[in-house]
Design a binder for these strands. Structure first.
Length: 259
DNA sequence: ATGGCACTCCCTGAGTGA
């Protein structure tokens, strides 16, 4: 089973590039972030005609997450638990029914800039709620994963120019510590379990020719419970599509599970 | 060396992003 995460930076803007990638990459499940659309306006037909079930959790203009799945989805849940006042659409989860059930969580973690500020406070508070959900997933002792745009640069090697990010919410020590605390529950960060060393990125800014200079950062991640990690056969970043027509500023990251 | 973009919407300029 091939499962991908992709921050598309607007479903309307990606109405051509996204299906092109789907037809090429043939993922079974896709976790989308930044659909920037209300549920009613999401172009489900594009995906349903390709055999995907579609579950969205959108809002107007900003944020928004979705799941596309060729396999049936059950027990869909929207919104990260822990704050009834939180209006931002950044979390969706469901169970994929394959050979074996797999719980999948798609997330769009807050950016957090500027630092300091209310947005940074919100990021860190959101990560505490994420920790709580992660702890419960771990306690289930079942195959599960949390994937999406974490807006976290885990290590210096995950940025082409780490010094440019020192004071940024994506690389501040508090952000990275909160990410590490979640990993330390026992999750496997899928990409780093298979590939070491610098030069592997999932985001390149539209500005300053970042793609052409490979001036990127790696901020889109898969975190696997031990029961899911045992099934992992591959994890790759589809970097090349950043150079295609009208791209998102992020590229897909995917895993292959023996499921 | 520096700066260079793109998305959204009843506000085509301002907020947001990373």
């Amino acid at each position: 089973m091939k499962i991908a995460t992709f921050n598309i930076n607007g479903i309307k803007a990606r109405a051509e590039a996204l299906p092109r990638w789907l037809d090429d990459a043939q993922p079974d499940v896709v976790l989308l972030q930044e659909i920037k659309s209300i549920d009613e306006n999401f172009p489900r037909e594009i995906f349903e005609e390709r055999g995907y079930n579609v579950e969205t959790h959108g809002q107007k203009s900003f944020n928004g997450v979705a799941i596309l799945s060729k396999l049936p989805l059950e027990d869909v849940s929207r919104g990260l638990p822990g704050d009834d006042e939180d209006e931002q659409a950044r979390w969706i989860e469901a169970t994929v029914i394959g050979k074996q059930a797999l719980r999948i969580c798609g997330l769009y973690l807050p950016n957090g800039n500027p630092v300091p500020g209310l947005k940074y406070d919100y990021k860190l508070a959101w990560m505490e709620r994420l920790y709580d959900r992660a702890r419960d997933l771990m306690a289930s002792e079942e195959p599960a994963l949390m994937a999406g745009d974490y807006n976290i640069i885990p290590q210096a090697e995950d940025a082409a120019r780490p010094d440019a990010w020192r004071e940024d919410a994506l690389f501040r020590p508090e952000s990275r510590a909160a990410f590490r605390k979640i990993l330390n529950l026992g999750f496997t960060e899928a990409f780093r379990a298979r590939t070491q060393g610098p030069g592997h990125y999932s985001f390149w800014d539209y500005q300053a020719g970042a793609w052409n200079k490979n001036d990127g950062i790696r901020i889109d991640h898969f975190l696997l419970t031990p029961q899911a990690a045992d099934l992992m056969q591959d994890c790759q970043i589809d970097a090349a599509i950043r150079g295609h027509e009208k791209p998102s500023d992020h590229v897909p990251v995917w895993i292959q599970l023996d499921l």
